[in-house]
Write a protein that binds this DNA or RNA. Structure first.
Ligand code: MN
Ligand code: MN
Ligand code: ZN
Ligand code: ZN
Lengths: 149, 149
DNA sequence: TTGTTAATGAAAACTATTTTCATTAACAGA
DNA sequence: TCTGTTAATGAAAATAGTTTTCATTAACAA
């Protein structure tokens, strides 16, 4: 049992082994506030561990999404982007503001309480009406940022 | 001036010619309530006009998105999906409920007024705080549909 | 320490989408 | 209606993100 990072428990609990690539990938994600693509992560990880392959990055990201440690987003630039889920560290639940010109992403938490209140109401209503088990939501605004408008 | 469909005006007004492929693609989109992929549209159009190519479908969809006649969505299945914008015909503004297991998409308009009210508030606040010119929003819920839960 | 088996990396495959380029058709003006 | 200009088109090739294959390696339970 090499390491006792906070994620090892969740990882082993789901039947996955704790490996060097997996730890390296999670470290990269936990040290940034950006929304990284698989290749971004590969390049960052590559600096410290040049032997880790892009395939492993993709595979690990799939697992991390499936066990809820990270979120996967599509911001319309043709590649998936990832960010650590909020429950673990100091991360707060937030939504996104996307510049359609330069691709800049802003995390915002303003009005999140008002949004949460409405989300509760809507989720409840929808799950009853459509007999849906709702597990998540996506809210984002798009437009032009201060530099692009 | 061959045709006088409602979209011809908008089309010519933006400097685009009205062509057989463009009309065929818009017809397919206006006759369905589904969320079609480029290939879906290509196949549908192909039945009536076998000469129309997939490339033209992609090109036309790009234009239609850029002039606001259709919306482009990513529902996580690896291909873009399209649907007619609401302002033109009997279409109402709506949001989406997505089954993560079978991929089913449900258009819902329930609570849309409450959502709209909040969106107004949030858009106003965000555009002031971040000096963003907001042009659109995306709201969707994901979970398991009645058949998959 | 060892055996089992999941995890890995390189290369190839896959797939949605875009680009290239020669040909065709829309339509403004005559 | 006819014609010239030029945007639009379709086939094929290229691109790029992601997934699959398969032989090798490493995690970890015993
Ligand atoms: Mn974020
Ligand atoms: Mn819809
Ligand atoms: Zn911008
Ligand atoms: Zn379903």
């Amino acid at each position: 049992m090499r390491n006792d990072n906070w994620w090892c428990g969740r990882f082993r609990g789901c039947g996955y082994k704790v490996t060097v690539p997996r730890e390296a990938i999670l470290e990269v994600l936990s040290l940034t506030d950006k929304h990284l693509s698989a290749e971004d992560i590969y390049l960052a990880v590559h600096k410290k561990y040049p032997a880790i392959g892009l395939t492993t990055v993709y595979r690990t990201l799939d697992i991390l999404v499936s066990i809820g440690l990270i979120y996967k987003f599509d911001f319309g630039d043709g590649r998936a982007r990832f960010e650590l889920a909020e429950d673990s560290k100091g991360k707060k639940h937030h939504h996104h503001l996307i510049c359609t010109k330069c691709g800049r992403i802003i995390d915002y938490t303003d009005f999140i309480d008002d949004e949460f209140e409405l989300l509760q109401l809507v989720e409840k209503g929808l799950s009853k009406k459509y007999n849906f088990k709702i597990s998540g939501h996506l809210i984002q605004f798009c437009g032009l940022c201060d530099k692009c408008r």
